[in-house]
Design a protein around this nucleic acid. Structure first.
Length: 118
DNA sequence: TGTTTGACTGGGA
DNA sequence: CTCCCAGCCAAAC
C-alpha cells in the first residue's frame, strides 16, 4: 500500500543475497566486498555489501570475518563484538593475520564469481 | 532536502 | 603499498 514498502522489500533482497554468498565462503578462505558485489551483478557497489554486513551483526549464521577489503585488510574488525574478534576467528581457521592484515592473501582468497563458475 | 559519511573499488601518479 | 580522484548507494544528520 505504501510506496516505502517496496523499497524495504528490495533492500532486504539485496541483503539476503549478500548473506547467502558470504555463507558459501569455505572454511579457511576469505573474499572481498567487491567480489560479492560483483557476484551480485555490482547491483549497488561494494559499499552496500559492507552496510549489509553491519546489519548482519545480529546474525550468527553469517561469517562476516571472512569478508575483507581488496587489500586483505580487516577493515571491519572494529564493528565486531570485540575489535579482536575478527582477527581471532581468522587465525582460528588457519589464516595468518599480522597487524590487521591477512598474510599471503592471494592464496586464501576465494572469488565467488570464479569458484562458483558464474 | 542537501551534505556528509562509510566494513569499497579501480585507475593513475 | 601509499596518495589522490571519481564513481557508487544507503543511512544519518
Amino acid at each position: 500500500m505504501i510506496k516505502s514498502d517496496k523499497i524495504s522489500d528490495k533492500n532486504k533482497d539485496f541483503f539476503d543475497h549478500v548473506y547467502q554468498v558470504v555463507r558459501l565462503v569455505p572454511y579457511g578462505k576469505v573474499t572481498s566486498y567487491g567480489a560479492v558485489a560483483k557476484y551480485l551483478g555490482s547491483a549497488r557497489g561494494a559499499r552496500m555489501v559492507g552496510w549489509a554486513m553491519n546489519a548482519c551483526m545480529n546474525r550468527d549464521d553469517v561469517p562476516a570475518h571472512r569478508v575483507v577489503n581488496r587489500l586483505g585488510i580487516l577493515s571491519g574488525k572494529m564493528h565486531f563484538t570485540s575489535p579482536d574478534e575478527m582477527e581471532r576467528r581468522l587465525k582460528e581457521e588457519g589464516i595468518e593475520v599480522i597487524d590487521d592484515q591477512i598474510q599471503n592473501f592471494k592464496s586464501v582468497y576465494w572469488d565467488p564469481g570464479r569458484e562458483l563458475e558464474l
